[in-house]
């Protein structure tokens, strides 16, 4: 039997031992997983970004402009000292600002306007008749949005519309729950498959 499968199988069982109760074997496996994940991420981050985008172009090709992000990156380490930790605000501010700047058009166009347009445009078909299923979308959209309208109390007409919105939300949460159950079960089936085939060789 392949050594890798044996180790993976034993570690799988170690993690499943948590279902009985928290125990040292599970804790050891969990700690190993945390450590390996960080070590793995370090390798990938180091190689794909620090070396590829910084070390080689800056020190190998002499692209001196990259000294700026290098210094900004190093400022992140100032967080380890109370005296200097305010310096880490500078690279954070740079990243937050850049993120905010690019997100404005994306949020406005791709997330808001496109979605509104997709709700309204198909409401009437080519012959001008009302499309009832599309009407459900518009009712659902307006009522759910009014549920999230917090500028005034959900009373009277707005309250009633918002209540309809909660029903739509429940349908969404129900469907999402159903799919989430499906997803988690698939993962479990995957692990059972591994245990029965590669680890125990009960099934070929």
């Amino acid at each position: 039997m392949e050594i890798g499968a044996i180790i993976a199988g034993l570690l799988t069982l170690a993690i499943y031992s948590f279902l009985y109760k928290d125990n040292p074997v599970y804790k050891a496996a969990e700690s190993l997983l945390i450590g390996l994940s960080i070590g793995y991420a370090l390798v990938i981050f180091w190689q794909s970004t620090i070396v590829d985008l910084l070390v080689k172009p800056l020190f190998g090709e002499g692209k001196l402009i990259l000294a700026m992000p290098f210094v900004l990156g190093l400022l992140m380490f100032s967080r380890f000292s109370q005296k200097t930790s305010w310096l880490s605000r500078i690279p954070i501010a740079f990243m937050i600002g850049a993120g905010a700047g690019v997100s404005i058009p994306a949020m406005l166009y791709a997330r808001t306007l496109k979605q509104v347009s997709a709700s309204v445009a198909p409401l009437f078909n080519e012959s001008g008749a009302l499309n009832l299923s599309e009407m459900v979308i518009v009712i659902g959209l307006i009522s759910t949005l009014s549920y999230f309208y917090f500028s005034r109390k959900n009373e009277g007409a707005i309250g009633k519309v918002a209540k309809v919105g909660t029903y739509f939300l429940m349908i969404f949460f129900g469907a999402t729950f159903g799919y989430t159950v499906m997803s988690r079960l698939s993962t479990l089936i995957g692990r059972v498959e591994f245990l029965l085939t590669d680890f125990l060789h009960v099934i070929k």
Binding site: F172, T176, Y179, T180, M182, S183
Partner: peptide, 8 residues
């Protein structure tokens, strides 16, 4: 996608 993400 994983099934859990479909409705998103």
């Amino acid at each position: 996608l994983t099934a859990a993400m479909i409705t998103t």
